[in-house]
């Protein structure tokens, strides 16, 4: 049961931290429409995270609620991949990070619909419809900026290169995932790599951007799935948790 909860929290934390990062754009988007889009995508991600947290709480019992996990765990207990916790940077940076992650979530949820766990499969089915829009949004921006002005192209290419080393972790299986795979609950993320690379390569080609080949086969960052995070994670949690840590259990 502990492993199952760990797996569900991995799914929840991915969406939660991604949603939180995108919410930081609220009021700062380069145009009103983009601002609203990012807030809506953020909301979808928080919604998916909430479904997973609720499910984890229902299994764990013991007074746990959907709020226990995001509000009271410390950095080392979070199971999200490193990619989603990286800072927003400029708009091209956020679009590159989102594009890599949206493309992953698209293929991931497509496969996760086959989970033997009915609730996980249901959340995957629901989220896939939403992630399809997210991927469309971030892909369009990668193309628009990549195939745009000299400056936008350079910024988009830099962003695409910069996040590359954080994409390997998406396709590496943690011990928790391996255990859950044996029970048919998790999926084998390493099998998603080819589909993901094709999605990425097709969009980058349309964007007239270079696929980050020079780093291919190189070294990838990892650690998020086992709780070893970047230095940014603590700052995110400080922002997310300060209210509940100051006034535990407060509601409004």
């Amino acid at each position: 049961m502990k492993t199952l909860i760990d797996y569900i929290l991995h799914l929840a934390d991915n969406s939660f931290i991604n949603g939180h990062r995108l919410s930081e754009w609220c009021g700062h988007g380069p145009a009103l429409e983009v601002d609203m889009a990012l807030s809506n995508i953020s909301l979808d991600e928080l919604g998916a995270a909430r479904s997973f947290y609720q499910y984890a709480a229902s299994i764990e019992g013991n007074g746990k609620t959907e709020d226990s996990y995001p509000s009271f765990r410390d950095v080392r207990e979070f199971r999200n991949v490193l990619l989603v916790e990286l800072p927003n940077g400029n708009f091209a940076d956020t679009m590159a990070r989102s594009f890599y992650f949206d493309a992953f979530q698209f293929h991931f949820y497509t496969a996760l619909q086959q989970s033997s766990d009915k609730q996980i499969a249901a959340i995957a089915e629901k989220s896939l419809k939403e992630v399809t829009y997210h991927l469309k949004f971030s892909s369009e921006w990668v193309v628009r900026l990549g195939d745009g002005t000299d400056e936008s192209k350079q910024k988009m290419q830099t962003a695409i290169n910069q996040f590359w080393e954080y994409t390997g972790e998406l396709f590496s299986m943690s011990e928790t995932e391996q255990d859950m795979l044996k029970q048919g609950i998790a999926i084998d993320v390493s099998l998603l790599k080819d589909d993901w690379e094709k999605t990425v390569a097709d969009t980058l080609a349309e964007a007239t951007l270079r696929y980050p080949m020079h780093i291919e086969g190189g070294w990838f960052q990892s650690g998020g799935k086992t709780g070893i995070h970047t230095e940014y994670m603590g700052f995110i949690l400080a922002e997310v948790q300060y209210m509940q840590k100051t006034y535990p259990g407060c509601e409004w």
């Binding site: 429409e33 609203m36 889009a37 809506n40 995508i41 939403e130 829009y133 949004f137």
Partner: peptide, 13 residues
């Protein structure tokens, strides 16, 4: 189409 996302997630602008 102006934007895939409008005033709420269910709407486009």
């Amino acid at each position: 189409l102006v934007s895939q996302y409008g005033s709420t997630a269910c709407k486009a602008l």
